[in-house]
Amino acid sequence: MSEYRITNRVREMRFFAHEMTQQELAERVGVTRQTIMAIEKGKYSPSLEVAFKIAQVFNQPLDALFQYQCEIDR
């Protein structure tokens, strides 16, 4: 059975955006800070709309922030 996983570089992007806070990013994207935290920890995969909004905040293409991997075959 294959296991799919979406990874992201949101934390890293915040760091390079002058340590933008989770709260600031959340406000710009229109979600709660807890949702940004869950996305960074890989516990929640955002909708395409939110993913595009996050990419827009950092002025990056979507695939620079989110990666989709088929990890394990078991």
Binding site: G30, V31, T32, Q34, T35, P46, S47, V50
Partner: peptide
Amino acid sequence: GAQMNGDERDRH
């Protein structure tokens, strides 16, 4: 928070 009434993760 009341005005926002949750985001997509809350609804999920």
